[in-house]
Amino acid sequence: MSRSPSPPPGPSQRQLRVGELIRRTLSEILAQGDLHDPELEGVSITVGEVRASPDLRKATAYVLPLGGGNREAILAALRRNKPEIRHQIARSMALKSVPDLRFEIDETFDRLDAARRMFADERIRRDLEAPPEDAPE
C-alpha cells in the first residue's frame, strides 16, 4: 500500500522569499504615494505580511492603515488599484509572473492587544503566579 506524501508543515522557502519580496515592494509603492486614489492619499499603510500560495499564482497581502481606522475604505481602494499595484510590482521585481494580489486586514495587532488585556486581568495574573496544585511544598 503506497501512501501519498504528506503536505509540508508550512510554506516553502520559495513561498517565503517571494512573499517577503512582494511585501517590501508593496510597502515602498504605498510609502511613495504613486497610486493616485483619493482614499490612499496621505494614508500610511503597514504591510505586515504577504503569503504566497504554493504555486505562486496568488498572494495575500495583510495590511493595516496607521491607527487602524477607515479599514474598509482602504481595503476597497487597494482592491480597486490592484492592476496598477501589480504593474508596479512587476517593474520592480524579477519574477516570471506577478501573483494575483488579494488584500486583507491584518488582525495580528488586534490579537496582540486582546492577549495583553487578558494577561493584565487580575484573575489571570493571580492564576499564573499561583504554584501548581501538584507541586511539593
Rank of each mutant, 00 (worst) to 15 (best):
S2A: 15
R3Q: 15
S4H: 12
S6E: 15
P7D: 10
G10K: 09
G10S: 12
S12C: 01
S12W: 04
Q13E: 15
Q13N: 07
R14T: 07
L16Q: 13
L16W: 00
E20I: 02
L21H: 14
R23V: 06
R24I: 06
R24T: 13
L26Y: 03
S27V: 00
S27A: 13
I29M: 00
I29Y: 01
I29R: 01
I29K: 06
A31H: 08
D34Y: 04
L35E: 03
L35I: 12
D37K: 11
D37V: 08
P38G: 03
L40H: 04
V43Q: 10
I45N: 06
I45M: 04
I45C: 02
I45E: 03
T46N: 13
G48V: 11
E49S: 09
V50G: 10
R51Y: 00
S53R: 06
P54H: 11
D55W: 02
K58Y: 14
K58M: 11
A59Y: 03
A59T: 04
A61Y: 06
Y62Q: 12
V63M: 10
P65K: 05
P65R: 04
L66T: 05
G67N: 09
G67T: 08
G68I: 06
G68A: 08
N70G: 15
E72Q: 13
I74Y: 02
I74N: 03
I74W: 02
A77S: 05
L78I: 07
R79D: 10
K82Y: 00
K82H: 08
I85V: 09
H87P: 01
H87R: 15
Q88F: 01
Q88C: 00
Q88L: 15
Q88G: 01
Q88V: 01
I89T: 04
A90M: 04
A90F: 00
A90R: 09
S92R: 15
M93W: 02
A94W: 14
L95V: 11
L95N: 10
P99M: 06
D100G: 10
L101T: 06
E104L: 13
E107P: 12
D110T: 08
L112V: 13
D113G: 04
R117Q: 08
M118S: 12
M118V: 01
A120L: 10
A120K: 05
A120G: 02
A120N: 09
R123C: 00
R123K: 15
I124M: 11
R125H: 05
R126V: 11
D127Y: 08
A130V: 07
P131W: 01
P131E: 12
A135E: 14
P136M: 10
P136W: 09
E137T: 12
